[in-house]
Structures are given as structure tokens and as C-alpha cells.
Computed example of a mutant assay.
Amino acid sequence: MKAIIIDDEPKARKLLETLLKEHCPEITSFSHAEELEIGVEIIKEKKIDLVFLDIEMPKYSGLQILDFFENQIIDFQIIFTTAYNQYAIDAFKLSAVDYLLKPVDYMELKLAVQKAVSLKEQNAITTNLKELKESFKKLSNTKIALDVPRGIIFINHEEILYLEADGMYTTFYLKNGNKELICKPLKHFVDQLKGSAIFYKPHRSYLINIQSIKEFNKKEGGHLLMDNNKLVPISRDKREEFFSMIKELF
């Protein structure tokens, strides 16, 4: 099998290649790429069989790889690699895809490669990668992916208290007390979450989880008291809509 290691860290690429050479004789040739775009070109040019794909990379996340193969036959396997265990999502555990946590354990690596060999022999790759794409779509119905300096984090919709606009940035306030500042405007997330029934925009600067409202407060014309005791304003033109929504839902 021809393999490629796509990872922006040179040491990580070298270490993984060493492990593969020592423990996985099924791999007969190796290619390297430090960026996803370059890796995609090599996959297409050399007809790569197996892709070891880092998730956290500067320009594109490894999770975006399938976007580069729209309407094309996918005849390679993907094994995700990452240093952050929050990416260990059941959606990755499909028969066509495996997931390795850095530092990579050689026994887990051997099992992952053996799984890839087996699936190649069954000619099941394209079907299973289509299933992976569907899993990503289903995942987006309950979780949101946020770009942060260390990579991408996935947050359940229900873990969010509210979002607050800060110019071209948005701050996510979470139920566990954490907050994440994301380099995207609030409108981006309003559009992304409009299909979720638990979010409501009471003010141009806020998007809230209605499950996290503690009370309506008449102070200063009307505010919503959230579970973390934050007062979120309701725009004057939104009050009637808000009360109609509350009556309908509760």
C-alpha cells in the first residue's frame, strides 16, 4: 500500500514513518505533506491508498479533506491523528476510518493499518467514506465546530449559554464556566445555528440558548437573566416576538 502522512509537524511525520516502517510491512511507499492542499495533490497524483491525516493544521483542518474530493471517486483510506482527545468522536469510528491519539501507540497503529488493508480488499472504501461524510452532517446537527489556536473544538449545542458579538469576533459562553473567543462575526453563527430550535436572537449582539434563561427581568426596559446571572438585553422590536415564542413553547 502507498501511504501519505499529512502533518504540519516535521517530527510527527518522521516518527510516524519510523513506526510504520518497523511495524507495518503492508506499507510499501511513503509520501509527506505539511499542508492539506499539498497532500490532496499528492493523493491524486500518486493514487495513494492510505492517508494518515493530522486534524490540527494551520490553514485547513484535516476534517475538511473530503471537501477537496466533491463528486470524485474516493479510493483511499483515512486514519486521523491528533494530540487532542476531544476529537475522539464516535463519528470517526466507522469501518473505513480509524483514529489515533498522539503519541501514537504502535499496536493501535498496526490494528488501524490492518483494518485499512481489509477494507481495501473488500472494495468498501468509497461507500464507507460516504458514510463518514453523512456522519459529519449528522454531527453538525448537535455540535458546532469552533476554530481555536490549538485546532478545532466540538461543542454540544446544549453546552452553550449564549454568544456575544464583539466586532468581527464572537465570544461563546459555556455552561461549564469557560468561554471561547472566535475570530468570526456573530452573523456567521446565527446562520449556522438557525436550524437548531434552542437558539434565539433577542438582540443584535446576542444569540442565546433559550434553555439557559433563568428569568425575564423588567430592569431597563427588559432583560433576560441567564443561568450564569448575565443580563442579556431584549431589543424593543423583539419583545412581542419573544413573549409569543415563550407562550408557544412553555
Rank of each mutant, 00 (worst) to 15 (best):
L231M: 08
L174D: 11
K14V: 14
I48W: 03
I43E: 00
I6T: 04
A3T: 12
I5P: 10
I4L: 08
A124Y: 06
K219T: 06
V148P: 12
I38V: 13
L139F: 15
K238D: 06
I144D: 10
I73Q: 12
R239N: 01
T170N: 07
F154G: 04
I38K: 15
K115L: 08
I38N: 13
N141L: 15
I43W: 09
N217Y: 00
F136E: 06
E45F: 06
P233G: 03
D105P: 10
L111D: 14
K47V: 04
G221K: 00
E26W: 03
H203N: 07
I6G: 01
I4W: 09
E159M: 11
G221S: 04
F250K: 11
P185K: 02
E35D: 14
I155K: 13
I153G: 03
K11Y: 13
P58W: 02
M226T: 07
P233D: 05
H23T: 08
K115Y: 05
H32R: 13
K214I: 01
Q77L: 03
I182S: 05
R13M: 13
Y169V: 01
L119W: 08
N141I: 07
I73H: 08
N141W: 12
L19S: 07
D54G: 12
T28M: 07
L231E: 11
L66H: 06
E164T: 00
P25S: 13
P25Y: 05
Q122P: 01
P10Y: 12
K120Y: 05
D105V: 05
R204M: 02
I213L: 05
P233H: 07
T142D: 12
D75Y: 07
K138F: 12
K201V: 03
A3P: 11
N156S: 12
N141A: 12
P233F: 02
E121H: 04
E34Q: 13
R13S: 05
F154D: 02
